[in-house]
Amino acid sequence: MIAYLAGLGMLGPGLLDGQQGLAALASAGPLGAALRAPVATGLSPNEARRCPASARYALDVGMQALSAAGWDAARVATVLSSGSGDLEILDKNCRALTQTPAVLSPTLFHNSVHNAAGGYWGIATHSRAPTTSLSAYDASFAAGLLEALTTLPARRTCLLVAYDLPAPAALASVRKVVAPFAVALALCAEPPRQSPLARLDWRWQPRSGATETAMPVTEREALRQGNPAARALPLLEAIAKRRPTTVVWPCPRAGELQAELSFLD
């Protein structure tokens, strides 16, 4: 099945936004560790104060992709994918529950739901379009991409946002995420008016024996393996280099998602 990429956003080590990130990925140089604080565009000061880091990353990259695609948020369905959600908030809540008597903060409680980022997205964009939030652990990016791609036949456009952040100290022993990373893809069923970034011919199929597409450079491969959302890197690098290629995301014990990338001009 065919989909088009009308715009993208990213934020991670050395990848400070979509445009700069593509240039960095097209070059052979190291990405480095520089980060930028994510921006919660569209929220009132009160909402922005409550908005947790995970949702800020989602809002930041989502807005980048929408703006690059030139889309009005109101009609765009969203899929938010995160392997572990916001572990900082989880840590604070679990600590509060060890106190006697236990008292939770109402804000931390409502921010602890996996779809908090989706909620803030709706508040920021005033969009009533369908939004879903999901996880497939380390396979969350491919699961989110599959969800977004299968949303296209009915909705025509869909914004995929994937993000994961490092765990706080108490949970770092059981959940390793090496650096924050978030990516957003503005996907559509028809060729967009402006030239698309890429055309994706995708399929879900039984395991073909093809290996998962990795990054040839060690630094980039470490990031890809160290953050579920960074499983997008092979796709992003191929787009950056405008290199026709097939990206394979095998899912544990299940089939695999394949996307054959091509570039129209």
């Binding site: 996996h114 999901l134 497939a136 699961a143 599959l146 879900w204 899912c251 299940a254 089939g255």
Partner: peptide, 8 residues
């Protein structure tokens, strides 16, 4: 395919 939807 397998995934979990978590929208409260």
């Amino acid at each position: 395919p397998a995934l979990v939807v978590s929208t409260a």
